[in-house]
Structure formats: C-alpha cells, structure tokens
Design a protein around this nucleic acid. Sequence first.
DNA 1: CTCGTAACTTGAACTGTTCCAGTTTAGGGG
DNA 2: CCCCTAAACTGGAACAGTTCAAGTTACGAG
Lengths: 142, 142
Amino acid sequence: MASDFEVQLRAASLRVTRPRLAVLGALRDHAHVDTDTVISLVRAELPRVSHQAVYDVLRALTTAGLVRRIEPAGAAARYELRVGDNHHHLVCRSCGVIADVDCAVGEAPCLTASDDHGFVIDEAEVVYWGTCPDCTNQRSAQ
Amino acid sequence: MASDFEVQLRAASLRVTRPRLAVLGALRDHAHVDTDTVISLVRAELPRVSHQAVYDVLRALTTAGLVRRIEPAGAAARYELRVGDNHHHLVCRSCGVIADVDCAVGEAPCLTASDDHGFVIDEAEVVYWGTCPDCTNQRSAQ
DNA sequence: CTCGTAACTTGAACTGTTCCAGTTTAGGGG
DNA sequence: CCCCTAAACTGGAACAGTTCAAGTTACGAG
C-alpha cells in the first residue's frame, strides 16, 4: 500500500511525491533492479518523469536508509528495498542476476575483521560470485 | 626482479613486453592503485605508453590471474598483485584508502553461503566498510 | 633471420552518472 | 483555506572511466 510508503517517507522527513512513491512501488515489486529498469517501471506509471528525478529519488531514499544500493563490481548500480536484516548477495558472473542469501554465520558473520588496522568498521559486505542455475544449464546444454 | 615477472608471464603464455613488466613493477611497489595511477607510474619509466595499453595489460594480467582487480562500490577499479591467500579488504568511506585483512574465520571464511539457490559459487568477496584512522582523527580534530 | 600474430598506438565512442539553471509543487504558516 | 518558499523535478549538457576500431610495431617460434 502506498500509505505505508508515505509513512516511511514522512518518518525520514522527506516529502511525499509521486515519483518517490512510484520508485518505492517499483522496488517493492522488482528486486535488485538497475537504474534504467527503475526508470522504465516508474514511467509505466508516470510517463513524464525525468531520468534525473529517478537518480535524485534513489539517492535521497538511499541516504535516508529506505533503500539499499548494491553495486557488484563491473556492473551498474542496483537497488532493493531496505529490509531489517543485513543479508548478502549471490551474483552470477555470466548473466548478472542477483539472489539474496542470509548471513552465513549467525547474526554478524564476518563483521569483525581479524585485524582492523585502526579502521572504525560499520559494515561488512559479502558478495558470493558464481554461476546461476540457468547459466549452468545453458552451458552444459551446449 | 624483473626476471621473476618474466617467468610468471611466460607461465601464463603471455608475451613479455616492456609495458607488462612496467605494470607488474608498479603494482609490486604500490598496493591498491587505480588505473590512472598505474598509467602515471608506468609512464615514469616508459613515457610513451598509451592509456589503452595499460587497460589492455591490466585486463590480460587479471584474466591470467597474475593480478587481482578490486572494485569498491562507487569507485574506480583498483589492482593488486595476486598473492596466494584470498585476503579481503577494508575500505575507508571517507578517503577511499584500502587496507588488506586476512580472512576472519579460518581459511575459507564465509565461502559457503547458507543457501546457495543452486548457484555454483567460486568466490566469496568480503568488503569491510568504515573510516580509516587518518579520517577518524581529522574529523575529531575539527 | 623471417614471418605471423599478439600486443601496442591513436583517436573516437559509449555508458552510467552527475552537474547546472530554470520551473514546478508539496505542505507548513498566516 | 490559500499563499509562499524550500524541496523536488525537468531538460539538457558535461564528465569520468572504460571500451571499441583500425592500423602499426615487435615478440618469439621455426
């Protein structure tokens, strides 16, 4: 429901606008989408939204913590609705598809490095690289 | 020594060329450098090397496994000489500096995801995000 | 030494993202 | 309830990092 997003936006002291609601709706329905896809999805609803508006909205939502930005090496940025758990991602080297995985080890998996070099660590990001089932099948079928 | 790199290149059935040796030398002396820096370092030795050559060399060395490409979200690609251990990285959100860390848990830390979704996983990449000592000090000094 | 091909040079193109100046609009104060 | 102003949006241009393409050079097998 839109009103749910409205509450979230207000809680983050962000104005409730159509583009923002459309972006949140798009992310609710499609996980791990890149900016271009978000733009298309938003325009399906609001045809006149500029690409710049989507970039602005995504940044505003990301800094507000409502949305999480994922940026696998060598690919465009992707976004997902921020859910409470700090889960990780499986990325297919072949087609780029992304799947969610829960933390491997308990609640804070590798959150503490063996030697922090004096850094103040606030997040441990884990990316599993591999080949997704579809790409594996396609390859063996060749 | 250069001859060491020569052996490595030949072992990967890559031709031994000055640009390649220069890139390897630059990476030996400077950890976690971005492409631009590699270009400068190489040109200090061989002024006439094109940026394209450096890009080509870095890609060839990366696919050959002699060099490892690191690509922290939102930053340009960085490179380091591939060493045997699969260590991880600490990245400073403020200045972008990178430090090495050994695997947190044993030899293959989080290498096995809790649920692999049918993916064939070949690498688990861990990035610790935080603030480096220098940036922490600078901030508290303000 | 000769020759074929991998590697290099030069220069332009491309993608994802950001910057900028001007216009619109959400939503609190009067 | 309406007005006003900062926040948000539009359109268009700029930018950085990387890659593509066509032609030239030089490594190293024979």
